[in-house]
């Protein structure tokens, strides 16, 4: 077990000729909560998607729990992982999306139990018990048989969090989890995330919720134009930003 959960060194990512990440260096320790802030188009979501290999990086090194993401190193040479091996890496990393992406043709409980049954071969009854517990934990014990369409945005996002937790991930990625929610529903999702942080989950959260970052994060990263502009404890980055770009951004969102 490595003390570092995520380690990024000079991570570059381009879409065609557009360079979105221009050398990202950062470290997330086990049990730590990191919030990534920044204007839209700054590359923060892309970086998050690189961590579970939904996007392939073009240069640099990115590892999770001491293992390279998407590659294996042998004798100083990089070998691409095959589909199975990539899936195995992904199964240990939970991801929560801005638009929830629940499976609409399945009930809340079926959404939560699908991956454990299919990917980890958990017996159906065990998966159901565990799924019920998880949905109760996010406050949806009475919505087991409800289809996503009949749930509010906040409830859908909480099911999505439970769905990720069902795989017992060692790292959770949140991609603007509250940006698509009505203002009065943001609190219930942040509450669940706050509880998760308290239970010791390692989390990387791309968010615009400055209050949440200040309260929950161990480290805050400010990204702009594909680079990390400033990082450190929330009191420093949010309370006394050193960089002009950070100050300008914070004055707009606060």
């Amino acid at each position: 077990m490595s003390e570092l959960m995520v380690k990024a060194e000079g991570v570059h990512k381009s879409f065609g000729r557009l360079e979105v990440l221009k050398g990202i260096d950062l470290e997330v320790r086990r049990g730590e909560v990191m919030c990534i802030l920044g204007p839209s188009g700054s590359g923060k979501s892309t970086f998050l998607r690189c961590i579970n290999h939904l996007e392939k990086i073009n240069a640099g090194r990115l590892s999770v729990d001491g293992e390279l993401v998407g590659y294996r190193e042998k004798g100083g040479k990089l070998y691409e992982l095959n589909e199975r091996e990539v899936a195995r890496e992904r199964a240990e990393i939970g991801m929560v999306f801005q638009h929830f992406n629940l499976f609409p043709h399945m009930t809340a409980l079926e959404n939560v139990t699908l991956a454990p049954i299919q990917v980890k071969d958990v017996p159906r009854s065990d998966a159901r018990n565990r799924g019920q517990q998880l949905l109760q934990r996010v406050g949806l014990g009475d919505k087991l048989a409800t289809y996503p369409v009949a749930l509010s945005g906040g409830q859908q996002q909480r099911v999505a969090i439970a769905r990720s937790l069902a795989m017992e991930p060692k790292l959770m990625l949140f991609d603007e989890p509250t940006s698509a929610l009505d203002p009065e529903l943001v609190g219930e999702v942040l509450d669940v995330m706050r509880q998760l942080a308290r239970d010791g989950m390692t989390m990387i959260v791309v968010t615009h919720e400055i209050g949440f970052a200040r309260e929950v994060a161990d480290a805050v990263v400010f990204m702009d134009d594909g680079v990390v502009v400033e990082s450190g404890p929330p009191a420093e980055v949010l309370g006394a930003p050193r960089h002009e770009r950070t100050r300008a951004f914070l004055s707009k969102v606060l």
Partner: peptide
């Protein structure tokens, strides 16, 4: 496309 991405993130194979 978000559907496939969510399923990929859960570690499911292309066939699944």
């Amino acid at each position: 496309e978000g559907q496939s991405q969510a399923a990929q993130a859960l570690g499911m194979s292309r066939l699944q």
